[in-house]
Write a protein that binds this DNA or RNA. Sequence first.
DNA 1: TACAAGTTAGTAAGCACTTACTTACATGGA
DNA 2: TCCATGTAAGTAAGTGCTTACTAACTTGTA
Lengths: 211, 211
Amino acid sequence: MVNNTQQMATRMSGEKRRIQILEVAIRLFAKQGFSGTTTKKIAEEVGVSEAMVFKHFANKDKLYADIIDYKACNHGLEDPFAEISEELKAKDDFGVFYGMALNALRHHEEDKDFIRLLLHSALENHELSKTFFESYVSEIYDFLSGYINQRQKEGVFIDVEPKIVVRAFVGMMIHHSMSNTLWDPEQKILKVSDEQAAREFANILLDGIKK
Amino acid sequence: MVNNTQQMATRMSGEKRRIQILEVAIRLFAKQGFSGTTTKKIAEEVGVSEAMVFKHFANKDKLYADIIDYKACNHGLEDPFAEISEELKAKDDFGVFYGMALNALRHHEEDKDFIRLLLHSALENHELSKTFFESYVSEIYDFLSGYINQRQKEGVFIDVEPKIVVRAFVGMMIHHSMSNTLWDPEQKILKVSDEQAAREFANILLDGIKK
DNA sequence: TACAAGTTAGTAAGCACTTACTTACATGGA
DNA sequence: TCCATGTAAGTAAGTGCTTACTAACTTGTA
């Protein structure tokens, strides 16, 4: 439970310890929520006295806030459209939606803690979810609905409110990731690779399931 | 804050009080989670002393367990296919998916607390979410994927793993409901009626967005 | 008047957070 | 090369408050 990986009889630099506390806190908040996680438990898992937590973070709320910054800087919030720039240029519709989906699914899988953290914060009306959705999600909405709008004008897509299409598509991905992290982690109901899921989601969105 | 609706200077019958406590607890657990809700707060909102809560429920965990029973019996778990039986018989594909979607969206809207409660319990690894998903959700998966399978055999639907299709469709609905309850309750990003959302989701699933 | 509904006034344990202190270590002048 | 010194890492032992939960009592009503 304590001091899990390596023995550190010696002390750590402040910055290293800070990050260590942050990462333990992320794991615990993700697992048990904000109010379900005690500062004592965090300190215990880090292998340090509780006072150290408060040396690095003014209070528990500030620790939470700093997790947001940390996550926002280190993870997930780089440009989500960089990897599909070629498909965008080529107006390769399947490539665009497949790329977006695959990207998202892989990301979610790598960082399940982040999904849980986001959900916890959304349920507890914390800032993280607001920040995340206002900056990140609405950007995706704007971008994708812009793309759809353009393709509608070019006569390639049918005339339907682009934001509903985005909601449908984002829903496929998020729900799939949430199923795999929250409700069906053993994937009893459905077990598919990220590639297959992304491919089918993109196909369904573009062509539907009717012959 | 206290005693919000009607004056009750007189006392209540045990059973009525029990249900009142249950319903207040549901609202608070939904809002702030299990560990974020105190028994004191519950008693306060009911307008009764904290000891009364423990007269009716042996402890906080038992209160939570009884909420599950209460919700499972009273709400949400009636047959979700009853209302689309005619469309099913007529093999009206749009009708089937539109009906399912509209049904789900309306249900979620009526009972936002239930969504929040489910999410909280999923995140906290409580029993409610397991029970619900094993009994209710997997039933929907079986049923819908059965329908899709049948229509594939009849040569009407393309050949794609039915459960992926169900995941995509369920994802549209759940994510839409979650957006409206959790992340964008003012519907800034997207504001549509349940009917329109259901119609577009069904159309997208069946026909896609390409011309 | 019997008995259930209700309260008051607790308890021990747990919570976030603080205080007052001790230790390890890098550094620079002798 | 030594070791005094400043500083940052670290701790033990609290603080006052909140928590879930209880016991012993009072009150309303059928």
